[in-house]
Nucleic acid binder design. Structure first.
Lengths: 235, 235
DNA sequence: TGCTGTGAATTAGTTCACAGCG
DNA sequence: CGCTGTGAACTAATTCACAGCA
């Protein structure tokens, strides 16, 4: 069997790896030893060939005629995503959303160690949220010299996001999960993922009122829904 | 000038429309009357041709040599996304994340009226969160007969998500913003958008440790980053 | 036989490049 | 001119389809 790895990995593949990992954990808890790409399709709605192709960017993990060892594949994907060891992560912005994220169980499950929380609001600085005390963002550079966090979660208002992001980057943060609805202009070496509820709601809103006269009975499959009939213009 | 509209609209286009709307609101507040696709690119990182193409699915909104009327375009996009009038939205799951979402300003900005909150936890039922009282999910069908919400935000644990989603759909919900890390199997007519922090963190985690020896100095541009050099395999 | 791994084909989405209008 | 709107070219991502191994 040929070997692979070498071409560039599509970003959507990385997202799906996280999904596979989740399913593998579930299977492991159910004491399932082996899984096929067809099983994964059943559990995730992601096409079986897609699953195999996603893995093929990183190597060969299955046995023809058999499938994949749940435990082994789990380890492999964790290694690929670098979540086979704990990663220090910082949160900036201890408002509603930020505070909610501190308790998010997915963080720990993915070996993300939320090691510090920062804010610029004197009202919040010093407050305890879960097991952490909110620190002054001014101290970020100093504190992160010790923490060495490379991933940050940015949950500040849009108006502050750019400024704060620059502070983070100056203190060696290399990846930002940005919840602020604004474009961050940062050096290309910094990876930014934007989470926008607005965008998702826009998609829903558009579809809801468009769907007035739907009529097919298929089951919904996967992660991303595709294109859709349009609406009329104006002007 | 030719007319358009008629082909299917890519889903990413709908998400970007929400971004354009945000920028238009900012421009309006700055009393800017007119905007060009190049200006939009500057503000959003989204390619100017992309912006024009996105709009072209719905009609013609600009004047050659001039650009777009900020106020007019704002109205048009709001109409396309059906957020030109208030939409009732329900939230299910009053845990950390759910509670945080109740206060999310983006909801109101996008004319989403959060009209009710449900949970199944007796500890939470009856509690006040912001200006709403948490109701028993058992009463959902009855309550939604009056509310007529078609959009729901699902912020319950993964184990409960499928069951709850079916309750929602039975009560005529047609679009779900799903924060639970699990595949919802629902009739195809129901639109589901999954929000997965896990996936985003996976992408960040992968990149952080891969990026160890980067060296180009470009500015980061847009909404989605693209593919990336891979890592080694195992087995 | 039942599965994987993967080139090839397909489909989707983005960007270019330019005709044509104000 | 300076801009839009859009067909055409391109790039990315998904899915097919099948050779080949256990």
């Amino acid at each position: 069997m040929p070997m692979s790895s070498s071409n560039r990995v599509p970003v959507p593949t990385l997202g799906r790896l996280a999904t596979y990992l989740r399913v593998l954990t579930e299977l492991e808890q159910a004491h399932t030893e082996t899984v096929s790409s067809a099983d994964v399709e059943q559990q995730t709605g992601i096409n079986a060939a897609q699953f195999r192709k996603d893995l093929s960017y990183f190597g060969e993990f299955g046995k023809p005629g058999v499938g994949y060892s749940v435990a082994r594949l789990q380890e492999s994907i964790a290694a690929i995503l670098k979540i086979d060891r704990r990663q220090p992560v910082v949160l900036v912005g201890a408002g509603n959303l930020g505070s909610a994220l501190i308790g998010y169980p997915g963080l720990t499950e993915h070996q993300m160690d939320l090691v510090a929380v920062f804010d610029n609001n004197p009202q919040r600085i010093g407050c305890q949220v879960r097991n952490l005390y909110v620190q002054d963002i001014q101290r970020f550079a100093t504190v992160n010299e010790t923490l060495q966090a490379r991933i940050a979660i940015l949950a500040v208002p849009a108006g502050a996001a750019q400024r704060v992001a620059e502070v983070l980057v100056a203190a060696d943060v290399r990846a930002i999960l940005n919840f602020a609805p604004t474009l961050l202009r940062l050096p290309a070496a910094v990876v930014v993922r934007n989470v926008s509820f607005m965008q998702e709601l826009a998609v829903l809103s558009y579809h809801v009122s468009s769907n007035e006269q739907e009529e097919n009975g298929e089951e919904q499959a996967g992660e991303q829904n595709n294109s859709v009939r349009p609406i009329l213009h104006s002007t």
